[in-house]
Amino acid sequence: MSDIVLRAEDLVREFRRPRRLLRPRPPGLRAVDGVSLAVERGRTLGIVGESGCGKSTLARMVVGLIAPTGGALTIDGRSIPELARADRRALCRRVQMVFQDPSGSLNPRKTVRDILTAPLRALRGLDGAAARARVAELMDLVSLRPEFADRHPHEFSGGQAQRIGIARALAAEPEVLVLDEPVSALDVSVQAQVLQLLGDLQARLGLTYLFISHDLAVVEAIAHDVVVMQRGKVVEAAPAERIFADPRHDYTKLLLGSVPRAAVP
């Protein structure tokens, strides 16, 4: 019996389109259209798709920033939309998110210490010296020098900023980390650093990842299982080894065939 942490069943998110004058409201846009998936504890589920396939909407539903319009979404058997409504902090202690744009996800007017202390105080009840110690631990965890804590986000490169984003997510001590295109804004050499860090963290802390990306090679490098999405629907789901070696759905094949390859025989 496998240990499922996160489960979506027939999940739907519809966005209403604006009504036009004297005409009936057009049918809603189904950004996520009946998605079912399950993530095992301690593993990484990669979600791959092109822009507009609904992967980011899915990510935001998992952390409770957007409410689904249909279907079920649970973490540890408890409904995420319900938790988001009734006890957001309990949800935030279970699942956290790392955003795509490393600098856009850090408030430019705060120091790193402020940014890391906020979740410690609100979610973990840490204050004063305890919080200071924990900030230092977190900085160490993501390999940032402790003296960086009193700097502002604009003083950091993209890769460093993304480490801060990861540290903030870890401050809540979540079981599940939703990573929404965490390396696509980074240069390859830095991207590799962050991917390695994410791998190490998973091994050390037993985290479960929902890793969202448009880059198949990156997903292959980090994910255990892969889900391919197209226009709000899952078109193929399989273990990573299988899906990259033997893609079955036409769209998966098209995606794989489109990646320009540097590798030479």
Partner: peptide, 23 residues
Amino acid sequence: RLLACVPALGSRTGRVAPIPGLP
């Protein structure tokens, strides 16, 4: 080392090997 950073599709052999430090 830059080439070693690029995850190569279809070669699920090893991890990417990052370059330490910043440009």
